[in-house]
Design a protein around this nucleic acid. Structure first.
Lengths: 335, 335
DNA sequence: TTGAAAGCGATACCAA
DNA sequence: TTGGTATCGCTTTCAA
């Protein structure tokens, strides 16, 4: 294995000089730098990550904790993952992947063992067991999501309350008076994933504000679950002309079910979806949607972690404002 | 930070004894071990990963390289990822996640920097640029997939040739004489991803063997692509009574299109899918399928890496035999 | 602008 | 059964 000493010898300088060329932490004469860089290239030298971590107390690795759930849309998770990995690379960081089912043990293992400089945690629940432990770690953490109480820890997420409100507002402004919410899977509510309840709160606020009539139902994330959910909605509010769908997995089945029951979108039923853009565009009819900006959120999470690492910024919470894009699934109704 | 020296002092032993208690590489008296373990627990000691890697030349981390493509089914990729992470944890290994778009640079970065002990590479192409470089690394690599020439490197994959053969055979044995293959996306063929061509070869072999008439078409991985693919099939072989679908993303649109054109599955059209079990079960009608055993493949990849690390096994290629499960999408035709 | 050398926190060899 | 210590490869302080 090639070491820094080999490079130093080849370049006729000391090891520390090579180190400084690499880190840029002190000025080096152009001539010396050139020789060192030539030797590095010639020997194909790569600094030993472990040695570096030991001496510098930096690993240039961050941990990313992902859920394994199948009741949340897996492609959406994957979008977060790739955006985090891509953003991390732009800071010369690598990503260690943990699964949520390891729980607190996984976090303290990688943090306590100094395997990572920071942690990014997805799928945070309202009252998440992991939050108190994260707060105690030496490394900064960034949550994707918003627990009940998050003082001392950074959070980033879409502003789901505002998003729920905006969805209803859009339908109200198009004259809809009777609407329904097709929500996330029951399990998502049960385990207290906060985006579900925040969205619902915003939805209900707007319903009251605009004086609408509404029903809301969780929706199992598959064909049967969607069928059942629509059955209930049709029973309780048969006059509904607008649907807010906060469940990516339900979208495709839903469109089928509507068509099968003879209802056209948007002529007979308007649909506002909450999903990433590519999902809204990947269906038979382009959906009017409130974007879940996975790319942004992932990049911001990494950025927040980096800012905390270089001391530029303490813990903060950032909620992204919803953006609604009109496409082909909403129509105004006339009384 | 708590170090091994702190633990040693607390337990009244030397640092090396603590190290040996941890590694189990030499026998320790029960009394000493108990005291050491008590101190470890009391101090909540975690060995520093970097120091460990430096001294032992082992990181207990393996690299996993995933594609970012959206033309292959993202949930399937995620299944591989979670099975690899889960299997790795069972060997006390962590997983560093790389994306394929980093190419050879990413591989040599993490391998050259001794960040990982082994690499697992997904989405390997027939003539993959990364293979020669992987062969040169100090660390063992396991490919998920099968490049043209793989001597000296471990591979694991479903036996796609046998799978293609089995799909056709199943239809032939049910009396179908005219069949069509709905293949992966054109891009998958173009970049030479070998499973596509291996499957096609097996498909064609069986078609010849059983004296069938067949057409095969790539299929764009969305609604429009599937529509276009079916249009071509209907034009070229309108008498087809059986479909082999080697494209998870095409399955849902395909069933819709068939229904929209008035064809019932399985009465008017038999369908054999190649996909993970959960995909086959997640559609309106449970599909007869050849399983893509993502869990197995991921676990085997990790196992092969571990066996190479402890010198128990050199590079080898393992192709898993296809397993067909009959469900509700295939019917025998009578002449 | 550069070099020498003291750590960083483990492992594992050599002794006892 | 245990302890002492050289060593892993790098960073960074102190000196020049």
């Amino acid at each position: 294995m090639t070491t820094i000493a080999d490079v130093a010898q080849a370049a006729g300088v000391s090891a520390s000089t090579v180190s400084y060329v690499l880190s840029g932490r002190r000025s080096i004469s152009a001539a010396t730098r050139a020789r060192v860089e030539a030797s590095i290239a010639a020997l194909d030298y790569r600094p030993h990550a472990g040695a570096r971590a030991l001496a510098s107390r930096r690993t240039n690795v961050l941990a990313l904790v992902v859920p394994l759930r199948t009741d949340v849309n897996v492609p959406v998770i994957m979008q977060f993952v790739t955006s985090v990995v891509t953003a991390a690379r732009s800071y010369d960081y690598d990503v260690l992947l943990l699964t949520k089912d390891e729980g607190e043990a996984g976090l303290s293992r990688v943090a306590g063992g100094a395997m990572v400089d920071a942690l990014i945690v997805m799928d945070v629940e309202s009252d998440d067991d992991r939050v108190p432990m994260l707060r105690r770690l030496r490394q900064p953490a960034v949550l994707i999501g918003l627990p009940q109480r998050s003082p001392g820890i950074s959070c980033v997420d879409l502003d789901f309350a505002a998003t729920g409100y905006a969805a209803v507002q859009h339908l109200a402004e198009h004259g809809h008076r009777n609407i329904a919410l097709v929500g996330p899977a029951p399990a998502v509510y049960h385990r207290g994933t906060s985006y579900a309840t925040r969205f619902l709160a915003g939805f209900n606020d707007a319903v009251a504000q605009f004086g609408l009539t509404a029903v809301a139902h969780p929706c199992g994330s598959n064909f049967d679950g969607t069928m059942e959910c629509m059955r209930q909605i049709d029973t309780e509010l048969p006059s509904a002309t607008g649907l807010v769908v906060h469940n990516e997995m339900a979208l495709a089945p839903l469109l089928n079910i509507l068509r099968a029951s003879g209802r056209r979108v948007p002529e007979d039923m308007s649909v506002v979806a909450v999903c990433p853009t590519d999902v809204a565009l990947g269906l038979p009819i382009p959906l009017t949607s409130l974007d879940i900006p996975t790319q942004n959120i992932g990049a911001i999470a990494v950025e927040m972690a980096m800012h905390q690492l270089d001391g530029r910024q303490g813990p903060e919470t950032r909620l992204l404002a919803p953006v609604l894009t009109e496409r082909d699934s909403c129509l105004a109704v006339h009384a």
